[in-house]
Design a protein around this nucleic acid. Sequence first.
DNA 1: ATTCATGCAAATCGTTTGCAACCCA
DNA 2: TGGGTTGCAAACGATTTGCATGAAT
Lengths: 156, 156
Amino acid sequence: MEKKIVKNFEEKLRNKGYRNTEQRQAVLSAIIDNQGRHLSTEEIYDIVKANSPDIGLATVYRTLLLLEEMNLIHKVDFNDGRSRYELNKSNEEHLHHHLVCTQCGSIHEVKDDLLEQLEKQIHEKNGFLVTNHSVKFYGLCSECQKNNSQKTYQKT
Amino acid sequence: MEKKIVKNFEEKLRNKGYRNTEQRQAVLSAIIDNQGRHLSTEEIYDIVKANSPDIGLATVYRTLLLLEEMNLIHKVDFNDGRSRYELNKSNEEHLHHHLVCTQCGSIHEVKDDLLEQLEKQIHEKNGFLVTNHSVKFYGLCSECQKNNSQKTYQKT
DNA sequence: ATTCATGCAAATCGTTTGCAACCCA
DNA sequence: TGGGTTGCAAACGATTTGCATGAAT
């Protein structure tokens, strides 16, 4: 499936008259190889630099913009002051939300499709045509809940 | 109802040994007086400066952090590169989502409570305790949809 | 009087941009 | 060859911070 993404990328580059460079391939590969990790730009930069030490941070920024424009990735924001990116899945399975632990910062994903009907409602009632959504739940992961109850014991 | 918020604020300040200053009152008032406008820090600064020209931008930033810590406001992010803030409503009615138009940037609000059951499911299945959520729908507002179909005609 | 809060300016951090060198098509 | 692409460094914009002054308790 990763090869499909790469092919798609190369094709879209050609269509727009853009060039298929090593750096662009490397950035896309880094994201594909780390699915589910929600890498920040700097993290992607570090990964790519391991194999291509000469790449510049600006190139990574520019490539991410390009990949976003081509709908291959999208930005996710976890309020930590930096942009993170996620590979776009094929339409059928793109419905997942993020659980952000406000204590340890861990991110978990949940699959769900309750949102579809909600989006229909929104179109009917508000005339607003939904093309994308961002859903995040903040709270405590099970790990932190455990730790917290332990701490209560230790305090005595 | 605004007075309730202000009382609440003053009480929380005292509880924590913080001080009730003119600047803090002014920032909170600006937010209360502009509910639904999703003001950015700079916009709040400009509003407050109209009556208190000597206030510093840093004070506004610090006060917003304080108000957030006290759970009186929360941050909303519309991907425009700046933080915006919204007053926290009482628990019963805090469920509304944002419709962000990707063309004109307008923000509409939708009331909804479909999320409650979803949050229960999440707790049961994932052991994650949801305390807050952020839900945004991106797409085209009715206005822009209209304009777009007009443009199609004009192109001929 | 003490200690917290303020305003200002400088510092910081993520991101963008100008430009000369570079390299894919 | 020529125009998109790169790396570097400088520029940028939002936010934070250090510090001396000022004000609330």
